[in-house]
């Protein structure tokens, strides 16, 4: 299997902290895969994101991104391969206007202006922000700013996109818009794009091919969304909302209604309840 990210026995401890944020963590992500990393606040998942593009330097272990060891010598090449959307929409908006911000990554890579004049509007169109090209960030909502951040990444066409709780500070509408934009992008690029989304959002996690659960700096579980969701209310401890069908099952179980133990999505739970009803 062709792994685009390999994390081998990584440990990291913040200078001001007494415990390790990541403790001997190993995982790998295949090229073209969409992986959600979940875990409660402080579980170490955002630390992992920063280690991947050398914003933090691991105390121990090795990370390989697209065949390159992540170290000081390779860091700019590695950063070229990874686009990252951070949590706070305001604090990652560098440009004075939307178009300027999208161009920032291109400017850093020394792309010709003529080329930028094509790439910037195209990237903005991709996230449906083309009408806002000359707007200043003050006049944008959080969801719009995150879409601009995504456009800035689309413009430089990286192989990997990391969403570091990119929807955590948005209202439901903004969240849906950002998730829809990512879904569309992944759909277009297919195996050419690997998505790593660090999230608490059940809708965002449900889109993934695989979910990795991190707790206390270690990987504690992994599986398909259906497998992970089947733990029901315990998902809350893992740092994820509980899908509604699982919430209802748990509530029914408390009222001594016998419910199936395997994971059911909403449609199947409706069917199950309907059959139960017609049997009676």
């Amino acid at each position: 299997m062709n792994n685009i990210i390999e994390v081998k026995n990584i440990s990291y401890q913040y200078p001001s902290s007494e415990t390790k944020a990541l403790d001997n963590l190993s995982l790998s992500i295949a090229k073209g895969e969409w992986v959600a990393i979940i875990g409660h606040n402080g579980s170490g998942k955002s630390t992992l994101a920063k280690l991947l593009n050398y914003l933090l330097v691991a105390d121990e272990g090795e990370i390989i991104v697209d065949g390159q060891v992540v170290n000081e010598a390779n860091m700019w090449q590695v950063r070229n391969k990874i686009g990252m959307v951070f949590q706070n929409p305001e604090n990652q908006f560098v440009g004075a206007t939307v178009a300027d911000d999208v161009a920032f990554g291109l400017e850093n890579r020394g792309i010709d202006r003529a080329e930028m004049l094509k790439l910037v509007p195209a990237a903005l169109k991709e996230v449906q922000m083309d009408a806002f090209a000359d707007r200043e960030p003050t006049h944008l909502s959080g969801g719009q700013k995150q879409r601009v951040a995504l456009a800035g990444i689309i413009a430089v066409a990286p192989k990997i996109i990391i969403l570091d709780e990119a929807t955590a500070m948005l209202d439901p509408k903004g969240r849906q818009e950002v998730i829809a934009a990512i879904r569309k992008l992944k759909h277009q690029l297919g195996a050419e794009l690997t998505v790593l989304s660090i999230t608490h959002d059940i809708d965002e996690a449900a889109d993934a091919d695989r979910i990795i659960v991190i707790n206390d700096g270690q990987m504690v579980d992994e599986g398909t969304p259906a497998e992970i969701f089947s733990v029901g209310p315990r998902l809350l401890e893992l740092g994820l909302d509980v899908p509604f069908a699982e919430q209802l099952k748990a509530a029914l179980r408390q009222l001594n209604v016998p419910v199936p133990t395997e994971y059911l999505d909403e449609e199947r739970l409706v069917t199950w309840l309907w059959q139960l009803n017609s049997k009676m």
Partner: peptide, 14 residues
């Protein structure tokens, strides 16, 4: 930094 900013040289201007 994540977006590749390494200082003023070799940057183009939009």
């Amino acid at each position: 930094e994540a977006r590749g900013y390494q200082g003023g040289e070799n940057r183009t201007k939009y």
